[in-house]
Nucleic acid binder design. Structure first.
Lengths: 218, 218
DNA sequence: GTCTATAATGAGATAGAC
DNA sequence: GTCTATCTCATTATAGAC
């Protein structure tokens, strides 16, 4: 798990890595089998030898990407820890994950928009039902305790992943809009771990005896 | 401006509309000239007659998309209105824009990731410098008044566009994760106008004599 | 301006030698 | 297992009739 640099091991794994890189950067339609072969410094035909077709290879890579993403989030969503700590961990973990593979969020979401069926066989819904049910219980508790405003689990979860994932999805745009070079961009991302956590907690917490968030509708 | 349904007017405009739809849904690589021709119910050759190449047509559509987006945001960012009102307008306007063209955000950001140069000739940076400078002044004022926590204009702006744009970019994913059909999805989006506004304002506002947001670093 | 036909190239996939 | 050569089909683009 520690030394995966040279990685001249088996060809199959080499291809997977190359495919991951190329697919996640260019998407299914933009990626050429030749690109993947070049990246792996092997012949196109070998790709077909190991993984019958472009489609098959793609499905594998896509599935892996989703698995890694959910695998990192799952233990936190199921952990029995205080709400604010859970939020902090969720933010930090997802950001770290995206730092390690910056194109993954865009990759997953873009391919799902292209063809929502790519994910249908996995039963994402069941998993999220647990995530959200879990979170909902914690939110209700804290609400009754008077420490946070009333908010649905779906809303809060969506707020968090929006704040965390968008800066990666919009990397190229943000760099130009904010005038950031690579270094500046990554510094901004690191700063966001604390910033987003604080912003989210501030957004739902009640300090003294505040009635119910900001005066607004129900 | 009211009757653009039949729209048998000039062919050029018809092609533009079709191209906008196809490109924004499938991206540059995923879109076929045949798809656009089909959408417009005309011949492929006509596309080349009006717009020399796929590249040229794409650049036009992409530019239009960016223009429409910035065009809607600009007046709000430059308006001399109270901070909280500005936030509310920004959220509502951007959501409306995305409702009208749900694929546009993904389209712009995905194509920029594929090739950041597509936007380089426009000088986005200058525009955002004004946006952010403007916002920064308002934030400093409110901070001195003691009504909000200390926050950089870039951070707040990024928070807002993240919260607003992500649900559109992740539409397909969210629908499956949250178990939403089309109607449920759009209802959720509409609810978000108020929800995001409230959440953002809550996230930065100081109610009574709170010192500086949540106890945390500088 | 709009169409049909066709050229020219690109890209996925397979056959077969080594 | 890995390569070269080749097949096949899809796609962009153009030529030329109407």
């Amino acid at each position: 798990m520690s030394k995966r640099v040279g990685m001249d091991q088996n060809t199959e794994e080499l291809i997977r890595q190359s495919a991951r890189k190329v697919f996640s950067e260019k998407g299914f339609s933009g990626a050429r089998m030749q690109d993947i072969a070049d990246e792996a410094k092997i012949n196109r035909a070998l790709l077909h030898y190991y993984f019958r077709s472009k489609e098959k290879l793609f499905e594998l890579i896509f599935d892996e990407a989703v698995t890694r993403f959910l695998g990192a989030v799952q233990p936190i969503m199921f952990a029995r820890i205080p709400l604010f700590e859970k939020i902090e961990k969720l933010v930090a973990t997802e950001i770290d994950l995206c730092v390690a593979e910056p194109c993954n969020a865009m990759f997953i979401l873009h391919e799902m928009m292209r063809n929502p069926a790519v994910l249908e066989r996995r039963n994402i819904r069941k998993l999220y039902e647990s995530f959200l049910g879990n979170l909902s219980v914690a939110l209700t508790e804290e609400y009754k305790r008077g420490s946070i405003v009333k908010i649905e689990a779906e809303s809060l979860f969506l707020h968090i992943i929006s704040l965390v994932l968008f800066p990666f999805i919009g990397k190229a745009y943000l760099q130009q809009a904010f005038g950031l070079d690579e270094e500046g961009y990554w510094r901004m991302i690191q700063k966001r771990k604390k910033e987003v956590t604080r912003f989210v907690i501030n957004g739902i917490r009640i300090l003294e005896g505040r009635p119910e968030g900001v005066s607004s509708d129900s």
